[in-house]
Design a protein around this nucleic acid. Sequence first.
DNA 1: TATGAATGAGAATTCATTCAT
DNA 2: CATGAATGAATTCTCATTCAT
Lengths: 196, 196, 196, 196
Amino acid sequence: MSKKKNTDKYYRIIQAATKMFARKGFYKTRISEIAMEAQVADGTVYIYFDNKDDILISLFEEQMKVVIDNMVGQISKEGDPAKKLEKFALVHLQLIEQNLDMAEIIQVELRQSSKFMKEYKNEKFAQYLDLIGEIVREGQEKGVFKKDVIPGVAKRAFFGALDEMSRFWVLSTRKQYDIRTAAKQISEYFLNGIQG
Amino acid sequence: MSKKKNTDKYYRIIQAATKMFARKGFYKTRISEIAMEAQVADGTVYIYFDNKDDILISLFEEQMKVVIDNMVGQISKEGDPAKKLEKFALVHLQLIEQNLDMAEIIQVELRQSSKFMKEYKNEKFAQYLDLIGEIVREGQEKGVFKKDVIPGVAKRAFFGALDEMSRFWVLSTRKQYDIRTAAKQISEYFLNGIQG
Amino acid sequence: MSKKKNTDKYYRIIQAATKMFARKGFYKTRISEIAMEAQVADGTVYIYFDNKDDILISLFEEQMKVVIDNMVGQISKEGDPAKKLEKFALVHLQLIEQNLDMAEIIQVELRQSSKFMKEYKNEKFAQYLDLIGEIVREGQEKGVFKKDVIPGVAKRAFFGALDEMSRFWVLSTRKQYDIRTAAKQISEYFLNGIQG
Amino acid sequence: MSKKKNTDKYYRIIQAATKMFARKGFYKTRISEIAMEAQVADGTVYIYFDNKDDILISLFEEQMKVVIDNMVGQISKEGDPAKKLEKFALVHLQLIEQNLDMAEIIQVELRQSSKFMKEYKNEKFAQYLDLIGEIVREGQEKGVFKKDVIPGVAKRAFFGALDEMSRFWVLSTRKQYDIRTAAKQISEYFLNGIQG
DNA sequence: TATGAATGAGAATTCATTCAT
DNA sequence: CATGAATGAATTCTCATTCAT
């Protein structure tokens, strides 16, 4: 009964679910709507996924794989930790912009994951967050970041700042600031503060 | 037909819902569970609220009123914008700590609000966010914050940093850092950056 | 626990119920609506009536008392059975016209009585119907009506003709025929037939 | 989303609903009872019908289609308008007798239709009534019915007479008159009157 | 008597999931 | 593999009725 992956229909369902979850939310989205959007029968969804929860998790992990790989590739090109943080901010916001539906799901639906799926340990997200933690640690080792900065706090603060910014992006219809500006601002705050 | 407010039962239901929504999430919480927790009959819930959505909204607005008043009072005691930001961070995390259930609902359930309640304009949240925006603007006017900081970005970045931090708090069972430390760290990043 | 009758509130509730049942139907009418219309509290309704069914029955019997007395009085003025039938038709339609709400309840809601109130024997209605039966019998005895007419069939046929006519009246917004015309036509059909 | 018709289950549900509505009335009948009677799951009912109202309407229209076709066929065999009326009376009562459940629903439940279904325009019934109106008009044209008879009144009077008669039939447990007698009597009243 | 807040049994409807074809 | 009709458990909300004040 193991589910088939990496097939055309599997991805069509993932795509359809991404779209529908983003539009209507996880709970308000019907399996039949996903099936219709994916142009398959309702029952077919259950050939590829165990249940509704499984669609959400799969969708998330599938995309985070890509996102993390992408991010790791981009960051590793930079040597300087400060540049790496700047790059992270930019790439993060760009990824959001390129995949608004996915971004909305991560921000809105997946927050609930701890509630509705007790067993789901969101490792992919921890991994993503740690990319920031690693940069901070590296900066401290190289002596360019303050020693008293706590990486576990800093990574959350930095990610949170980006995340809140992107929520605004996702939800607002007309974008007031361009991505480069926002990314630049946020990394600047973190690196040098707003105090002048 | 207008619903009774400011009565004992009204607040008992709000309390019960806060607890249950935090534990099980909005969708997984049954009206009957809220009623039982509040020690009223199922039908009684509908004397005080229009429907399940109304409970969530009411609960949120009721608490935000208190939170905003509280925060405004605390900040106004400080004269220096930098001190105000520090204070905001500390008070925010303290409020979270004192009301973990409410915090969880705001962070997890209310994010969905834009999905399941198209009409609900979350003005209280915008108001709260603007408290930060105002501090930033004030700091710029006083010449203590950099001129090129965009208040609309900074307020989100700062709130996001605190919010992500507190999510970690809310969700993790054992607290690794104390609140004062976290608040101090985050405001320090924003004021002076992590670069040293 | 016997219910008080013949009081101001009792009649106000009867009036309110008549209006609401006619507008919305028995099942769709809420006790609270009747109470509001009667300007009494919900609980007060139960001081005067046992339950919702009891309101419908009381309302019906209360009005039929008046209707039957009225009809008996009017008919007894006529000596000729044919004239009596004519009179019956006219008075019936006039009563309907004067009390459209009541008419609607009799025609629509009370038809259901045998369904929702197994125990309710609609004696008042049988009594009303028998007024016609009596006229027929009298006419036969006097030798003015055909001997082979079965009074039990004739009374139903005559009443049914009037009733269907008045349903049309009650339900249609603009009246196409005046009452005297309709009453005259119907009694004419019965007395002399449409064949000519 | 469009409902399936003309399937085995569709008709089984119609049959079950006809039976239950006739026995207990529309409001007192539970969907679960209809489902059980039809030997399908509760949810299955909603595959074939939008809601409870829709069952009642569908049931009625489905049967009226048959009744009207049947009646038209029978009447057209007669040439003489008087014979046609006689035939109408007989066939109407026979149809009632053959389908007591349906008859009860039409007489009792559907009277409420104008109340609980504001939008439902009972066209099938108007059509049925007009069969009588047409016969009357035809009779007048052929010079066998009086000129001053108003077809719109006569059709209601004739139908009402039959309808009231059949209500008696439907509701009474033991039948006192046979159908042919009743039909003969009623059409005789209309054609030649009871006056002799 | 009169009130109206509270009750809680009850019912329509939904929708994730299954499984015969 | 794919289908989609069928299932039936589950849940919100209603409203007649009660009863403490």
